[in-house]
Simulated scan of single mutants.
Amino acid sequence: MKSSPLQLKWVTYPSASFEAVEAFDGDQAAPLAATVDAVVSYDLEGLHTAFVTISDDESKPGPYKFSMLVVSQFAFDLDRAKETYRPSTTRNLPPVIAVNVSRILYAGAREMLSMMTARAPYQAAMLDSVLLEPGDVQIKSTVSAEQILETVFKATPEEMAAARDSVAARLATSSPPKKTRRKADA
Rank of each mutant, 00 (worst) to 15 (best):
K2C: 05
L6H: 06
W10R: 11
W10C: 11
W10H: 15
T12N: 14
P14H: 01
A16H: 05
A16S: 07
A16Y: 00
F18W: 04
F18E: 04
A20E: 11
A20V: 08
V21Y: 04
E22P: 15
D25R: 13
D25N: 12
D25S: 15
G26N: 05
A30S: 10
P31E: 00
P31L: 00
A33H: 09
T35Q: 14
D37L: 06
D37W: 02
D37G: 08
A38C: 11
A38G: 08
V40Q: 04
Y42N: 04
G46V: 03
T49G: 06
F51G: 04
T53S: 10
S55C: 11
S55E: 12
S55D: 14
D56C: 02
D56I: 00
S59V: 07
K60M: 07
G62F: 00
P63S: 03
Y64E: 04
Y64R: 02
K65A: 08
K65L: 11
K65F: 06
F66W: 01
F66V: 00
L69I: 09
L69G: 12
V71Q: 14
V71I: 13
Q73D: 14
F74M: 04
A75L: 04
D77T: 02
K82D: 02
T84N: 09
R86A: 13
R86N: 11
R86W: 03
T89M: 03
L93D: 09
P94Y: 00
P94G: 02
P95T: 01
N100Q: 05
N100G: 04
V101H: 02
Y106G: 07
G108F: 01
A109G: 13
A109F: 00
R110V: 00
E111P: 02
M112S: 09
L113R: 02
M115E: 06
M116C: 00
A118P: 04
A118S: 08
R119N: 10
A120P: 08
P121S: 03
M126Y: 01
M126W: 00
L127V: 01
L127E: 03
L127Q: 03
D128Q: 15
S129C: 09
S129W: 08
V130D: 12
L132V: 11
G135K: 15
G135R: 14
D136Q: 10
S141R: 05
T142H: 10
V143W: 07
V143T: 15
A145L: 12
L149S: 12
T151C: 08
T151L: 01
V152D: 09
F153R: 14
T156W: 07
T156G: 08
A163E: 15
A163K: 09
R164S: 10
D165F: 01
D165N: 14
A168Y: 05
A169Y: 10
A169H: 14
R170P: 12
R170H: 13
L171I: 05
A172G: 14
S175E: 14
S175Y: 06
P176K: 09
P177M: 07
K178M: 08
K178P: 15
R181I: 10
R181M: 09
K183D: 15
A184N: 15
D185C: 09
D185G: 11
A186H: 15
A186P: 15
